[in-house]
Write a protein that binds this DNA or RNA. Structure first.
Lengths: 213, 213
DNA sequence: ATGCGCTTGTGAAATTGGTCACAATGTAGG
DNA sequence: CCTACATTGTGACCAATTTCACAAGCGCAT
């Protein structure tokens, strides 16, 4: 086991965990790799290979204990502590994110919200007051922020990423449609609507030749 | 050239296109694979390999003509026609999406918005009136919808996907945190915030061992 | 017209990730 | 206790993707 873990494995683990949590609520005691594969949209062998990177959690002939495996996966994904997050950009996407119920529930605390619109600065979102984006360094440093979420226009993203990193952020979730250039020790994840839509229109175009009718 | 195109190639093409459009506005006439690679967060060889799947668009010794390559990439990605999209779910995410300026500008027309909340049904979002989700089949069929965007709770996603597909949708953009099971001819793209966040906390945990301080 | 420098396009090699098959190992039942 | 059966964990294969290296092509300067 161990070595470097493929990114795709990590993503799938995240899916397995969500499936396990549903099963946990339903009271299912054990699950086989075959069943997990169905939920996660993959194959039984893939499930076992993914898990084998981290150890062996199952019982041969029986499968996996749902609560136990869920707990192990939470450990693996680093969900046993709470992460401090700063949200940069209080626009539509930022607001949708902030309200997302699973967000806080899964261990992410939004300790600050920043924006550069004077109209928005000072507003209160629940317990958090929107601050000027100039305070980014202050916030990241003083509140020991781990993850910066960039929900800002593409032009602003690179600069803000650099500032967040310089102030100590170790990971960035980027909603802007640009590739960020950051030091190797900083991790970046992308959520990019446009890329996904364009991948779809590419796929449709390839297949059925053009749009309907 | 040609054969099956890797998904990762398609995503990168989408990035190249966006970089090219910025250069186009700035008036840059030509670009090398090296420069494109910088913008797209990859390597020059990768850029050339990606493009070579579709033909040869550059001039040796000189690079690529920015407007010409942009135009070719738009063709490849299927952005020269407009796609008809139905948005299912008029919550926070749906609303953020709907307002996203690049959405319409890049060739996607949101021809209908559906929700199951009686409070919302009948409201007008710009030129579009929110309809009951029961009308999904009607809308997909009558308005010749190509792409269904699911911005709904995880429990509802699978059923709605099946209904959209049965009514004729050929692609689905899924914001819900479940893997969809659909026939092979239907393309699905996922936007999953939770997976990305968990991939980040995994990465931070692996590296620096736990959160800051 | 020729040579030089730069940059593309591409087969071949290397790497990475996924699939398969099966031995190992557990449970349950007689 | 022993046999039948189910399901895991994994090493060996296989497939896909990325990297590498270089011949071929283009434009400019002389």
């Amino acid at each position: 086991m161990n070595r470097r873990i493929p990114d795709s494995t990590v993503r799938r683990i995240s899916h397995y965990l969500r499936a396990l949590e549903v099963m946990g609520v339903q009271g299912t005691p054990t699950v086989s790799s075959e069943e997990l594969a169905q939920q996660g949209g993959t194959t039984a062998a893939q499930v076992r290979k993914d898990l084998s990177h981290f150890g062996s959690f199952g019982k041969r002939g029986l499968g996996y204990s749902v609560p136990e495996l869920a707990s192990r996966l939470r450990d693996i994904l680093g969900l046993t502590c709470r992460w401090r997050v700063v949200l940069v950009g209080a626009g539509r996407i930022g607001s949708a994110l902030f309200e997302y119920p699973h967000f806080a529930r899964r261990g992410y605390d939004c300790v600050a919200v920043l924006d550069n619109d004077p109209e928005k600065i000072g507003m209160s979102w629940g317990p958090v007051r929107i601050r000027p984006v100039e305070e980014l360094e202050l916030v990241v440093d003083a509140l020991k922020v781990d993850i910066a979420i960039l929900a800002v226009p593409a032009e602003a993203a690179q600069t803000l990423a650099e500032r967040a990193v310089a102030a100590g952020a170790r990971a960035i979730l980027n909603f802007a449609a640009v590739q960020l250039r950051v030091p190797a020790h900083v991790h970046v994840a992308y959520v990019n609507l446009v890329v996904e839509l364009e991948a779809l229109s590419f796929a449709i175009t390839q297949n059925g030749k053009g749009r309907r009718k």
